[in-house]
Computed example of a mutant assay.
Amino acid sequence: MRRMQEEMVRSFVGGLELIVSLLKSEEQEVLASVCAAIANIAKDEENLAVITDHGVVPMLAKLTNTTDDKLRRHLAEAIARCCSWGNNRVSFGNERAVAPLVHYLKSKDKHVHRSTARALFQLSKDPDNCITMHEAGVVKPLMEMVGSEDTVLQEAAAGCISNIRRLALANEKAKYS
């Protein structure tokens, strides 16, 4: 069933381009809905390749300075999903999307925390993004989230901290070798 849905979506490649172009909207509600749709579309690798070709990464990155929690939640989820294709996680770093995401952890909304931790975990698989996160003060809020009752949040926070720590250890080792 899922495979049939994915093939149907791909048969409407122009529709994927249209969805990405909706990221230019000025309406927060539209942007949040489009980000939620992109998060679902990006579950399929071929669909993700198509939306990447249509410039989804820089368009999502431009939205990261939002203060709207509904948009933050869906945007962070879309970013997390889009990181699994090609160089996208590096591109998000190059587009300066990483530091603004760290500030999402100050939100009062637990759903924002969960999707943001997932996005940060995916982004932390790139060393430059780890440096940006560390400089933006990500470790302390993530340490607190490791103690959450939400296991998805726990695992994403712990994975992100682990990647940052691994990079720090590699740098220490290189410094004294």
Rank of each mutant, 00 (worst) to 15 (best):
L48D: 03
L123C: 09
D109H: 00
V98L: 13
S25G: 03
R2D: 15
D128H: 13
L60Q: 03
E29K: 12
E6R: 06
I41C: 04
E144C: 01
L142Q: 08
H111R: 06
T64S: 05
M143V: 10
E29V: 15
N65R: 13
F121T: 02
L23F: 09
M8C: 08
N87L: 09
A174I: 05
L22M: 14
I79W: 04
W85D: 09
D109L: 02
A32Q: 10
E26P: 00
K108G: 02
L63W: 04
D150T: 02
Q154E: 12
A174P: 05
E27P: 07
P58V: 00
N47C: 15
C83E: 05
R114N: 01
S84G: 13
L169I: 13
M4N: 08
E149D: 05
C160M: 05
I161E: 09
S162H: 15
L60W: 01
T66E: 01
R118N: 13
S21L: 12
E149K: 02
E27I: 05
L167C: 08
P58K: 00
K70D: 13
R73F: 09
D126T: 12
Y176P: 00
A49T: 03
N171P: 00
Q5H: 12
H54V: 11
R96K: 14
D126A: 14
R89P: 00
M4A: 12
S91W: 04
T64F: 07
S84E: 07
A61R: 03
C35N: 06
T116P: 06
K43L: 15
A37L: 08
G15M: 08
V57R: 00
G86K: 03
E29Y: 05
P141K: 01
I51A: 02
N87P: 05
V90A: 10
V56N: 03
C82N: 07
A157N: 07
A158R: 10
L31S: 05
P100R: 10
L22W: 15
N171C: 06
K175T: 14
A76Q: 08
S115D: 13
L31P: 04
N163E: 13
A61K: 04
A168Y: 11
I79A: 04
A156W: 08
A156F: 09
V13K: 09
L101G: 06
N88Y: 08
S33D: 14
C35G: 01
E144H: 01
R96P: 00
N65T: 11
G93F: 11
A49L: 01
R96E: 15
